[in-house]
Simulated assay, not measured.
Amino acid sequence: MKFNQFVIIGLGRFGSSLGRELINLGYEVLGVDRDEEKVQELSNILTHAVVADATEEEVLRSVGARNFDCGVVAIGDDIQASILATILLKELGVKKVVAKAVSDLHGRVLERMGVDRIIYPERDMGVRVAHQLVSPNLLDYIELSKNYTIAELAVPNCWSGKSLEDVNPRGRFGCSIVAINKPKGMIIAPMAEDVLAQDDVMVVIGTNDQIEQFQQSITGA
């Protein structure tokens, strides 16, 4: 399902950053926050921004929250407000509800409420930065599930000029290079004969163990 309209409740650092990026990607965004200063700051950036208390059902009804494809609860400093806003979005029938969690306990509560996706910005960023620090060739790291990861890895100098068939990540490690980001553009679903270059970035998907083994082979290459 493609989502075109988002309502973001809470315009702090996470909510405002999310809203700005969704606007840049061409989507419609309604921002809701009790802080007039935060709303004013984004009033000329988001599609709409309103000063309102999202823990009040009538308020969410009045701003038309039920008509949005996806609701994001980005409240971080008030867990009670986060939970109340999440409950109301679910009760109003918003198609997909995503919520920010500030702790594992907060996340477990949101999970029991049937939230479609729970985001842990600080924890997830910490994990990504840790992987980047210990793996020089690792440019980005996203955990798709408990077992699967997608990673962006820089091509080591000694692999420049080699084809994917030569590198053979699937045969050697079980993971797959699903794209190659070259300076001139992205190659999606590359073929075995596609050749790697020094400035290329490989987009690799596999289990956590497969990705780790592949990273180690690059580091030692």
Rank of each mutant, 00 (worst) to 15 (best):
K90Q: 13
A99F: 05
M202I: 14
D78M: 10
P121N: 02
D166T: 13
L144H: 04
L110A: 03
E111C: 07
D124F: 03
L139P: 00
A221Q: 14
L30T: 04
R128A: 10
S16F: 01
D140I: 01
I177P: 01
N24A: 10
A65Y: 03
G171A: 13
V39H: 10
L153C: 06
R66I: 09
G64M: 07
V115K: 03
R172Y: 14
G31A: 06
A49P: 01
S43T: 10
I9K: 01
K90M: 09
E111P: 02
S176T: 15
Q215R: 13
A221M: 15
L133F: 05
C158A: 12
K184T: 15
A154L: 09
E37P: 00
R128K: 06
N147W: 05
S160L: 09
D200A: 11
Y27T: 10
N4E: 15
L46R: 02
I87G: 01
R61D: 10
G161Q: 12
L110S: 03
D77C: 02
L92T: 11
R170C: 08
T47C: 06
G126R: 10
L89W: 05
T47G: 06
I9G: 03
C70D: 02
E165L: 13
L196P: 08
A74N: 04
D200F: 07
A130M: 11
R112M: 12
A189H: 12
G93M: 12
I45W: 02
R128G: 00
L22C: 01
I177R: 01
V51D: 02
G12V: 04
A221S: 15
S135Y: 10
A179E: 11
G185L: 10
T219W: 08
A179M: 11
E212H: 07
G206L: 04
V115F: 05
F3G: 07
K95Y: 05
D199V: 08
S217K: 12
G19R: 00
E91M: 06
I180C: 13
K2H: 13
P183F: 12
F173T: 11
R128H: 04
D78P: 07
E56I: 12
A85Y: 07
V51H: 00
Y141G: 00
R172V: 14
A130D: 04
